[in-house]
Amino acid sequence: MTTIMPQSELVKKAVVYIYEQRKKYPKNFNKLLDQAGMRFNLSPKEAEMLKDFFKQSESDH
């Protein structure tokens, strides 16, 4: 049975997924973004926000 989640929950899960996967595969960031977008059914706008989020968090370090 499939559970319907609010989009904001899916974006949060995508962030966690990317953080976890980047520990294993640090050089495949764009591929991870694509995988997260497909896995969590993100819209193009949400995928772009996700990309911007990670760019911003990297520039803060």
Rank of each mutant, 00 (worst) to 15 (best):
K31T: 15
N30M: 10
L33H: 09
G37Y: 01
L50Y: 06
D34C: 07
Y19C: 02
K24D: 05
N28G: 12
S8I: 15
S57P: 06
Y25V: 07
S59E: 08
M38C: 09
E9W: 15
P26L: 02
K23L: 03
I18M: 01
V16R: 05
D52E: 11
K51C: 12
Q56Y: 12
L50R: 00
Y19D: 02
A14V: 00
E48T: 05
K13A: 11
A47N: 08
T3P: 12
Y17A: 03
Y17G: 01
P26V: 02
E46I: 04
Y17I: 06
Q35A: 09
E20M: 00
Q7E: 12
H61D: 10
A47W: 03
E9T: 14
F53K: 05
Y19N: 00
R22H: 06
A14H: 00
S43M: 01
N41I: 14
Q7K: 14
S57G: 11
E58I: 06
Q7W: 13
S59M: 09
F53R: 10
K12H: 06
Y19K: 00
K23R: 09
L32D: 03
V11C: 02
M1E: 14
N28T: 14
E46L: 03
V11I: 11
S59P: 01
A36G: 01
S57Q: 15
I4Y: 14
V15Q: 07
S59N: 04
E58V: 08
Q7G: 07
T3Q: 15
F53W: 04
L10P: 01
L10S: 15
N28V: 07
P44S: 02
K45V: 09
D34W: 04
Q35D: 11
K24W: 08
A47D: 05
T3S: 14
M1K: 14
K27M: 05
N41L: 11
K27L: 12
Q7H: 14
K12F: 12
